[in-house]
Design a binder for these strands. Structure first.
Length: 299
DNA sequence: TGCAGTGTTGCTTC
DNA sequence: CGAAGCAACACTGC
């Protein structure tokens, strides 16, 4: 479940591993991903031969700035993650050059592969390959020209990034002030603040001592401020620990995130709360599970 | 064995 | 019109 910290970890990895490389070729066994790009062939034509200038994050989206004014967007949705490794060709297929991400069972769901600067159609020898592992095939991939990119519905309404230093409490307050309903739902609304999903919303609200069902319109200034501070604190910590791997998420080398052990309440139903106040409870909010401590978090 | 649960987003329905 | 429900898909656990 890549949320902001997981996407940031992958973006950081990609800037180390594939920035400056050229896309030589691509492959997929799930052409459905590319319907919006006019099919896989059209997508391939748009990205083939392009150099990767830089990789950055927009909410939970990974953006590749390519040469010739192209931008490639990848949203990993629930089970997607990008893997990068050195590989070699064996017959018509690619195999890991050494023990790498593909040896890990959870990463054996690569449905899109990019060959970078020296793949099967390039020179024999050194070759980077960048794969999208995506067990449930929910991911989104598209390529656009610089001009049309800004106007894509996919990103047009994305809210401010909570880790930007320009993101201040006054802005947060005014954004949530326009909404009503359970605070947990509002925190996960990508058009309010971008990047927060189920894992971090639960831990943020525990940190701020706010009940996930608390109505956003009932929050006082002190409570809103506590949530704002917790957003920054938890997300920063999770980036430092390279994300959470309670499920499929892995970094580009196939390694798990270490926030998994640092989790406060997410998927800890029945355990004693980290403040030793109560037992963590799970409820449903808008069809999703929310974990909280009934003793620490009051309505 | 079958079905609920998993969580992100966008589309459909009320 | 906004909110709720469901579909996209595949695997796990009870």
């Amino acid at each position: 479940m890549p949320e902001l910290p997981e996407v940031q970890t992958i973006v950081n990895d990609l800037n180390k591993k594939v920035k400056g490389l050229q896309i030589l070729d691509a492959w997929t066994d799930w052409p459905k991903y590319f319907r919006r790009s006019g099919g896989f062939e059209a997508f391939l034509k748009a990205v083939k031969g392009r150099k990767i200038f830089k990789v950055w994050r927009l909410g939970k989206n990974i953006i590749f700035d390519l040469s010739a004014g192209k931008k490639m967007l990848i949203h990993q949705k629930m089970t997607g993650h990008m893997l990068v490794g050195d590989w070699k060709m064996k017959g018509k297929t690619w195999v890991p050059k050494e023990r790498g991400p593909l040896n890990d069972r959870i990463n054996g769901y690569i449905h899109v592969m990019f060959w970078l600067s020296g793949g099967p159609s390039g020179k024999v020898g050194a070759s980077k390959m960048m794969g999208l592992s995506d067990l449930r095939k929910f991911a989104k991939i598209l390529v656009a020209d610089e001009r049309s990119f800004q106007n894509l519905e996919d990103i047009k309404y994305i809210g401010p990034d909570p880790l930007e230093s320009s993101f201040k409490f006054s802005e947060f307050k005014s954004l949530i002030g326009k909404k009503r309903g359970p605070i947990k739902k509002i925190l996960m609304d990508q058009n309010v603040v971008s990047g927060i999903g189920n894992i971090y919303a639960d831990d943020i609200l525990f940190t701020a001592r706010i009940h996930p069902l608390k109505k956003v319109e009932k929050l006082n200034d002190k409570e809103s401020k506590a949530i704002f501070e917790a957003v920054k604190k938890i997300l920063k910590k999770a980036v430092k620990l390279r994300g959470t791997s309670t499920s499929d998420y892995r970094d580009t080398a196939g390694r798990m995130g270490k926030y998994t052990e640092a989790r406060l309440v997410y998927q800890r139903e029945g355990e004693k709360c980290p403040r030793k106040n109560g037992v963590i409870k799970r409820i449903k909010i808008g069809g999703r599970s929310a974990h909280f401590c009934p003793a620490c978090q009051k309505l």
